[in-house]
Write a protein that binds this DNA or RNA. Structure first.
Length: 204
DNA sequence: GCGACGATCTCA
DNA sequence: GAGATCGTCGCC
């Protein structure tokens, strides 16, 4: 996958990433997933629901890195979530990876998620996706396009997803800017998470 | 320095 | 439908 494909607004990149492959290689082995559900988040001042909305802080600085950088953050005191930093430029927009199908390394991902029954649940939901891939804070800031990087993004061997098979709707669990249909998923795919409305909040 | 709250998940 | 669980940021 070329950097220029990611050097675009997150809403564009989000749809590009459907069907793409994300691979994490460690000493124990490799887990590779096919992305089935994504959400776009805007940059500074552009999206009240984005971590970058209020500007650069030590916690969100990776969002300001170049497109193709992996942004991993910690939520709810126990979960990690993974994002692909987008553009244009380093505008701090990003795409949250919410769902995926494990296509390689099912055994390793099952060891990371021992309670899971169905394979389709291994990387269903953003925190589960990060867990199945073994992504945590130490992967924050990695370049997903650099040759030799432990976490890689590619479209090799993946057919583009047909437009008619892509669903669109509001983001999950987001309490601000709830009117933006910035979530995309592959229709009828069992690895797409269930929709839950966010707690309502006064716009900021 | 403090406290509210969050891009979640699991189980009842 | 609620609890687990804690880092981060904004505000006092």
């Amino acid at each position: 996958m070329r950097r220029s494909e990611l050097d675009q607004p997150a809403q564009v990149v989000a749809q590009t990433l459907l069907g793409a492959l994300l691979t994490h290689s460690v000493a124990d082995g490799v887990v590779s997933v096919r992305i089935t559900e994504v959400e776009a988040y805007g940059g500074v001042g552009a999206d009240p629901a984005s971590h970058a909305h209020r500007g650069r802080t030590p916690g969100n600085e990776v969002m300001f890195a170049m497109p193709g950088t992996l942004y991993v953050y910690f939520v709810y005191g126990m979960h990690w979530c993974a994002n692909v930093v987008c553009g244009p430029g380093s505008d701090a927009s990003a795409v949250l990876l919410r769902g995926a199908a494990v296509v390689e390394g099912v055994g390793l991902s099952r060891r990371r998620r021992p309670t899971v029954r169905r394979d389709s649940d291994l990387a269903k939901g953003p925190a589960n996706l990060a867990a199945a891939l073994g992504l945590s804070g130490s992967a924050n800031g990695l370049d997903l396009l650099r040759r030799g990087s432990p976490v890689r993004l590619s479209k090799a061997g993946s057919r583009p997803v047909e437009t008619k098979r892509v669903g669109v709707g509001p983001r999950v669990g987001v309490g601000r800017a709830t009117d933006r249909p910035w979530r995309w998923w592959i229709i009828d795919d069992p690895t797409v998470s269930r929709y839950r409305a966010g707690r309502g909040r006064t716009p900021r």
